[in-house]
Design a binder for these strands. Sequence first.
DNA 1: AAATAAATTTAGGCAAAGCTAAACCTTTGT
DNA 2: ACAAAGGTTTAGCTTTGCCTAAATTTATTT
Lengths: 219, 219
Amino acid sequence: MNNHTESEENYIKALYHLGGDDVVASGALANRVGAKGPSATQAVRRLASKGLVEVIPYKGVKLTLDGLTLAKHILRKHRLWETFLVEKLGFGWEEVHPLAEQLEHIQSHELVEKLAEYLDSPVHDPHGDPIPQADGKIPPAIGKPLQQFSEGSTLKVVRVEDAGTDFFTQLDHLEISLGKEYTLISISSFDSSIQLNTESGESFWLSHSMSSNIYAIAL
Amino acid sequence: MNNHTESEENYIKALYHLGGDDVVASGALANRVGAKGPSATQAVRRLASKGLVEVIPYKGVKLTLDGLTLAKHILRKHRLWETFLVEKLGFGWEEVHPLAEQLEHIQSHELVEKLAEYLDSPVHDPHGDPIPQADGKIPPAIGKPLQQFSEGSTLKVVRVEDAGTDFFTQLDHLEISLGKEYTLISISSFDSSIQLNTESGESFWLSHSMSSNIYAIAL
DNA sequence: AAATAAATTTAGGCAAAGCTAAACCTTTGT
DNA sequence: ACAAAGGTTTAGCTTTGCCTAAATTTATTT
């Protein structure tokens, strides 16, 4: 009961990401894992038979406690590997997600814990996202989305949501990275896009979908 | 044409291990990957359709040049990961094989080369086995099997064949490890088993199957 | 050289995972 | 309240990869 396929783990991950331990619609799930509806229905059934999810037909799916534990454990592995790739192997933070997606499926508790130790038991990954700990606890997430700052405030970017590659390409293009400081000039009341000033005085706009994945603290 | 399943890679690995680029019987192959005859036949057919092997029906299978290249690349990954696990994470040399067997399937040239660099481009893994290089060249294997030493010679263990866990359990039990020195007392003309003396004077016997996987240099 | 033994391949099944098309619930709009 | 729209599940098909049993080919033995 402790050995899962890669596909199963991907569904579990998706469920966690989409809803934590809340109910998720099978369509949304299928979408997230890049499959079609029926595949998700079927997959979810397999997961249910392993006690990892609860299904309410025509309503949605929900992680059980076991499923939740597994999800957090996979996320722990993912973020530890990302940390390793960036800090030890010198990868850029924008390249590591797809690699970690492979590495997170490696099966060995001992390996995970030795890796954590080797990295000095990190609490945040290279994107600033919290790394679930061995006991299942999740460190507090740092920063607030840019929208929640008032115009004129000075802020420091401390975290970005570990999303797709195109998101990072955009970030790189705008030369946004962790630790950088900006002044928030204005928030469009029309489409919620945000205007930032860099330290060197240049100004640029961020779409809502961009800025809502960028987290900062006030200075 | 560059993307292989884990199962396929396991068959390629097995072929390389069993025969290098010589013909291997399908039964032996099945045996090595822990499958039954028909599964191997089928697998081999898939590999042939990808140009990785050549099949001579009822005779055997043989790696093509592409297959050989792939095999060496997988072995490179395997041994680099083993090196990482032992040198960086502090695993014992006897524990790393099954982990490396998972890690070797991670798909990323960049990762492999960054890992190699991080480990200072090692030429031998923790068992003393040569690590195929990025260009496909294989560093010279060091040492000779214990059988090839004459009685009375003093020798140093420099390499063991990276085999199953039980082999390492045995080695550990006998407290044999890389770098240790012994005197070869005698070779049984009956069953080729070997009698060794440790530096501290204790004496013990090694079966042929054990000693033929242990390599040493003369002192 | 024929018969038997051993190895290999074919035939036919099964489970995981995916797909499309069709059927079936739920929700929503009027 | 009911019909259309939208989302979900069922049905049925495909591929990978493994299995057992049966047929076939190769090797061995007398």
